[in-house]
Design a binder for these strands. Structure first.
Lengths: 222, 222
DNA sequence: TTCTATATTTTGAGTTGTCAAAACAGAACT
DNA sequence: AGTTCTGTTTTGACAACTCAAAATATAGAA
């Protein structure tokens, strides 16, 4: 029962769906299906097979949840993915905006040997270029609870630490505005009517972004 | 009709089978099947599909040959494979004996972007760690006609330039005996009755190897 | 030429992963 | 309770790839 890349993709999608969900909640089929990019019926079939193998707990018509075995496996897939991203940026000199797709492919074929080599070369990094935490080899992950630009205090110096979206054009936008992880800024105004957030970047520039975008930029008070 | 990794493996196997064969000859099904590692019938089925797509010419009961389109594609697979091997050795510090398996997997998923990045980082190398020539991005390959330890002149200083076997234990053996590409030696005796070749390495050591092994070590008179 | 050995092809079947569309369950709304 | 909406599951089918074993072709030996 060696997990195919298909299986790995389902587990990874579940892992990420669960983390943006209250504890104990089940991930509904439809959500999983769209996350993986398959028709709903396909997800049902696959999930039943995963449940057979003990990787998930499945309640028909309700949803799925990773078992502990499934969680561990998913964490290892995520570890590979994020180490690869970090490697592509740090060693290969690629842009943080373009490494996601490559990592998506590579994560299913790199050997343990290679992963650990990358990890060592990078000095055992704890986060990837987007600030996402990298699980350890035994499947543990630091799960920090960041504020976002939507929830952080106003008029306070904060530092971008993580960006929870992999869309290349969004990432390029952030880069251009000096909003990559590590950069400082202050939130000046939130206007819920206008659905916008106005901020001043470290470079002193005022920019306004939508709340959707703002919620994807996580920060730490600095 | 994007070629799957399965297709790529058939093409690569054909490419390599053809190069150790007289020109114009067809590769017999059985040989292809064992090279790819499938049952004979499977190869037949696949080859018929490849012929459909114009990647090979197929004569039933006789054999297969790559078309020009197939040759080009195979060369690109080989390019990826060999650049990856070189990368794993030069950049990742892995042993030349252990990179083949990793490259075998990676060759099917690395993006063009990534391949060209590796190529640039390595300074556009012309050979991989085993001395195998790396095809260019447009599918051309230098096809030098080396001597082997079986055909080179005796008592003449020669330099190992290429090793045509990927078996890890054989490669480790060569490494230990200072027979990696680049090292010098002289062939002292060939004994066809004993099926052996005796040589003196650059380090002055006398060693004797079988003719099977000797034929896989290609050299240049230095 | 006939027989035989060997290689190749066919056939029938299985696996994995997928979809479209029909059938169905559960919750919410009269 | 009955109806409707939405999401889920079932069903039947298909594509890619594979195998084992039966059928067949080719070439060489008798």
């Amino acid at each position: 029962m060696l997990p195919s890349s298909t299986v790995e993709n389902y587990l990874k999608a579940l892992y990420q769906a669960e983390s943006s969900l209250e504890d104990k909640a089940l991930v509904p089929m439809g959500q999983l299906a769209t996350a993986v990019g398959v028709a709903p019926g396909t997800a049902t079939t696959m999930v039943k097979a995963l449940a057979e193998s003990g990787l998930v707990d499945y309640e028909p018509y309700v949803g799925v949840r990773l078992s502990s075995a499934g969680t561990k496996l998913a964490a290892l897939v995520l570890r590979r993915h994020r180490l690869i991203e970090q490697f592509l940026v740090e060693v290969m000199g690629m842009s943080w905006a373009e490494v996601h797709e490559d990592a998506e492919q590579l994560e299913h074929v790199v050997s343990d040997r290679l992963v650990e080599r990358m990890d060592a070369m990078l000095g055992h990094p704890s986060v990837d270029p987007h600030g996402d935490p990298i699980p350890t080899a035994d499947g543990n992950i630091a799960a920090p609870d960041y504020h976002s630009l939507l929830t952080c205090p106003l008029h306070t110096a904060v530092r971008v630490t993580r960006v929870t979206d992999q869309d290349a054009s969004f990432l390029r936008f952030l880069e251009k505005q000096h909003l990559k992880p590590g950069h400082s800024l202050e939130v000046e105004v939130r206007d819920s009517a206008a659905d916008s957030v106005q901020l001043r970047t470290g470079a002193g520039l005022r920019i306004t972004i939508g709340t959707q975008a703002a919620s994807k930029v996580l920060i730490e008070v600095s």
